[in-house]
Amino acid sequence: MEKFDRLTGVAAPLPLVNVDTDKIIPKQFLKTIKRTGLAEGLFYEMRFDEAGKPKPGFVLDQPAYKNAKILVTGENFGCGSSREHAPWALLDAGIRCVIAPSFADIFYNNCFKNGILPIVLPAEQVDLLMDDAQRGANAVVTVDLEKQEITGPDGGILHFDVDAFRKHCLLNGLDDIGLTQQKADKIAAYEARQRTSQPWLNP
């Protein structure tokens, strides 16, 4: 996983609530057996018509936001299915940070596994960033994970909270599985206990 320490980039506004994972990436793109190349499916139905022709106007297709690295959006972002294709598609399109008043649990968790930082801020602060993000290519925002600070285009600073362990993993680009495998002895001890306490779980 790619490290996340400090990110500076254009923030794109997506002022919608309850953006579900079907909307982030519809089902026809879930047939892949790869993690890459999913950007073409990102927000597909908002960007392309039924014949597959580009629909003008979607925020990430506008010249000012083509290279956006941050998405500012509404509450309950990422609700619905567990598809990790949603963060994979965002990542493939260059988005490394999503800022919203709230996220759905599974999507939120999936972001951290892919080097994307999801930031929860109070609605009033998201509104401020949304206004900033409307300024197009001038909407350059810096996210510093170590300091847990967002610096807006005018230099204003917002503080954000993040789970300490997740922060540690993102800052260092750590592989969860590798970390867990260091606890192999504890897992083995648990399995031994369970074989005695709940023998019916082991056919």
Partner: peptide, 14 residues
């Protein structure tokens, strides 16, 4: 429900 990274984590470590 879990994402695919966690599917891999469960497969590898239970």
């Amino acid at each position: 429900g879990i994402g695919t990274s966690e599917v891999e984590h469960v497969l590898a470590t239970q």
